[in-house]
């Protein structure tokens, strides 16, 4: 029994951390611009495809892996920047339904584009030998790559929090999130901040795509895979709160893994039950508003 609980605990964290990595960019964008971006899934998918293209399916060394991740993140960041200028910038003043739909339209467009560029055959990214395989702790088998992902997720969470709380960029960003007009009146370059935040959020999706690609079949059906879960994490975590998103992702991962281990019949429902309970009992999300907002 203890073994099973410990195993479920480990696998829950290992399930949740990739979710956080995917959702972190979405949280950032939502926190500053109040945009829930369906196209985030497409950004993720393009990251996976680009990573595959750079490495040709085989991961030779850690340095190559890092190059691949950088290229995936930077290129997707650039796509994010372009879509901010071309689409989202024009919609910040509009209601959230319009923005949601614009992002859905962007998802369709990018999805179609990916099919045009990469075709319809599924691809597979081979794991770096150093990260392949597993080891045992206290009788529980743990995948090496899960530990890598947990590490990356932790670094991202801390890094992003520091970026937002301790740097001047973070200060400006929070000011813009709080009150755009006021920020502009104070001489802050609101547009530039929005562009930078959107590009950073998209780059995080690209990075996630590259990081998680060795565990998935890379094909055009990948785009919607994490979208619903990521939305749930952003909402459950609370408006743009990085810590909230991390806790929400881990919570969802843990619920899923405990459900799978002990109540298989509930497996698919655990996410929905969690979201419903949090929204009904604490509509502002676990952590409430990280960026106090003018009007939610």
């Amino acid at each position: 029994m203890f073994g099973q609980i410990f195993a479920a605990l480990v696998s829950g964290i290992a399930t949740g951390m990739p979710l956080f990595i995917v959702a972190s960019g979405l949280t950032l964008i939502y926190g500053v611009m109040r945009v829930l971006n369906f196209a985030h899934g497409a950004f993720f998918m393009i990251g996976a495809f680009l990573f595959y293209n750079v490495l040709g399916g085989v991961t030779g060394s850690i340095s190559l892996l890092i190059v691949g991740l950088l290229i995936a993140a930077l290129s997707v960041g650039a796509i994010g920047a372009v879509s901010e200028v071309a689409v989202f910038r024009r919609l910040y003043a509009r209601d959230h339904t319009t923005t949601l739909l614009a992002s859905y339209a962007l998802l369709l467009t990018l999805d179609g584009l990916v099919q045009q560029i990469w075709g319809v055959s599924p691809r597979s990214q081979t794991q770096l030998p150093a990260f392949a395989g597993s080891f045992q702790i206290l009788g529980v088998r743990v995948a090496t790559y899960d530990v890598v992902l947990i590490g990356v997720g932790a670094v991202l969470a801390i890094g992003l929090t520091l970026l937002l709380q301790r740097t001047s960029f973070g200060q400006t960003t929070r000011a813009v999130a709080h009150d755009q007009t006021m920020a502009r009146a104070l001489g802050l370059h609101a547009r530039g901040v929005q562009l930078a935040v959107f590009a950073l959020g998209a780059a995080l999706a690209g990075l996630a795509g590259g990081l998680i690609s060795p565990l998935l079949s890379i094909d055009p059906s990948l785009a919607p895979t994490f979208v619903v879960q990521s939305f749930a994490i952003v909402i459950v975590g609370g408006l743009g709160s990085m810590g909230g998103a991390l806790i929400a992702a881990l919570l969802i991962g843990l619920l899923d893994s405990f459900a799978v281990t002990f109540f298989p019949g509930f497996a698919g429902f655990s996410l929905y039950i969690a979201v419903t309970l949090v929204l009904l009992l604490r509509p502002q999300g676990i952590f409430g508003a990280a960026f106090a907002s003018r009007e939610a």
Binding site: R90, T98, L101, A102, A105, T109, G112, L113, Q115, Q116
Partner: peptide, 20 residues
């Protein structure tokens, strides 16, 4: 077309942006 999603998405984007 072989990728209806692409054209559908583009058309929709135009409507959202140009015709609120």
């Amino acid at each position: 077309t072989s990728s209806p999603e692409l054209y559908f998405g583009l058309g929709l984007l135009v409507i959202v942006l140009v015709l609120p």
